[in-house]
Design a protein around this nucleic acid. Structure first.
Lengths: 233, 233
DNA sequence: ATTAGTTATGTAGATATTATGAAGAAATTA
DNA sequence: TAATTTCTTCATAATATCTACATAACTAAT
């Protein structure tokens, strides 16, 4: 419920739990512990951890069963941790809704790293990660799925032509486009208008995405030729 | 960019690429291939795949470098695939922004399973956990079993087409749908009517589920493109 | 510094897209 | 079959976007 990240460790081997715990605490996670399946579900319901590390060999209910029960009510990230190395077991684990599957003996460092990766993936601003282009340290972010452009974390409304011009420039960042090329790509070959129309779209785009539209840093003018996109990493 | 999922495989071993490819195709992924780092970046820019499987030992640019370059502009999920088994390498890989790290020799089945896990986490199409979806603090509640929609605790009657459009929008929350996409999903590909019919359904839906249909907060218009659903679960 | 050519920019009419209400057609139900 | 509901189309109003043009600012070369 709070901002801090918490992890529930479920394993009946006290030693393993305490090793993982110390690594996690060292990395500033809040830690909850459970030594059997029943306890795991209780603690889970009570504490709503941000992630669960789940051993599959538990003295009472099986880890798989615990996983299934958690999945009925939550999509919390689950990392399975087990001595079972059979292909079948791993596939089954992933199929049950696990987010990662680590076999014992394992390296605590790697486990912590994977905890970080899974959390980053699951909590990181809930965007559709694969469909996002971002430039200049998230100064300019384009969500391809939504067709949405964000400048400095603020949504800016771009028109269809503006969006298409921007995406064309970005897609071939290294290339300088002439006005005619942009027109034929964005407006179609049968556009019989004036090529300076592009200038107006560029002007409007710059107003929206440049920090200083007077001296643009994304959409650069190539004098005598056209425009190109330049993204700082 | 569409509903289908695509994977870019980057590996210089042709045999490995083709094995992975056949598994992926069998699981209905679209596959792109690259056999070196330069090609990988080109294909990546051109195709915007939903996920990248990246070998770290490439003949030209190192896989790490490719990963860094992709991460400059995209948060696409990356699964690293390599013969390096040193702890250090794995930690380094995860640190570069990889979403998973699999060592060779690997099991294709497990690789595919992990692709699925990562995509499940990163992409929009949510599999519904329960039979009830609720948004905006129960302002809008949809009971999938009953096919019932509640606005502000009041049941509102929605027609079959309205329900299907709403659920399609929700299922791929945040994706902007064109009218034609909605028509082909909801009314079937053999609908030979007018795409503006969708507008009327949207209008009617908004009357039923929006607090202020004049300025909708659930079903948003994306000018020149179509509509999308936007709400906190 | 001058000049010819090019780009930047504000504005406004033209064009395109979306919202909306109403009505007939089609489908469903009684 | 009649009654009811739902779907589709259409017309029109309300918005949003596009384009062209005029003029200012800039660039490169003489």
């Amino acid at each position: 419920m709070s901002l801090e990240k918490s992890v529930l460790i479920v394993d009946d081997e006290i030693k393993i739990v305490s090793v993982i715990e110390s690594y996690l605490i060292h990395n500033e996670y809040t830690v909850y512990k459970a030594y059997n399946g029943k306890e795991a579900l209780e603690v889970f319901n009570k504490e709503s951890p941000s992630l669960v590390i789940l051993d599959l060999m538990l003295p009472d209910i099986s880890g798989e069963e615990v996983c299934r029960n958690i999945r009925k009510i939550s999509r919390v990230p689950i990392i399975m941790l087990t001595a079972k190395v059979l292909e079948e077991d791993i596939l089954n684990g992933l199929d049950l809704g696990a987010d990662d599957y680590i076999t014992k003996p394992f390296s605590p460092k790697q486990l912590i790293a994977r905890v970080g990766v899974v959390l980053r993936r699951c909590t990181g601003d809930r965007q559709f990660l694969s469909n996002v282009l971002s430039f200049n340290n998230n100064d300019l972010v384009i969500n391809l799925l939504k067709r949405e452009v964000k400048k400095n974390n603020q949504v800016v409304k771009v028109t269809p032509n503006e969006y298409n011009i921007l995406l064309t420039l970005i897609k071939f960042s290294e290339k300088t486009f002439t006005r005619d090329e942009l027109i034929s790509i964005v407006l179609g070959d049968d556009f019989d208008g004036f090529d300076r129309t592009v200038d107006t779209h560029i002007k409007n785009l710059r107003q929206k995405i440049e920090s200083d539209p007077k001296s643009p840093s994304y959409i650069l003018t190539v004098f005598g030729v056209g425009y190109r996109f330049d993204a700082k990493p």
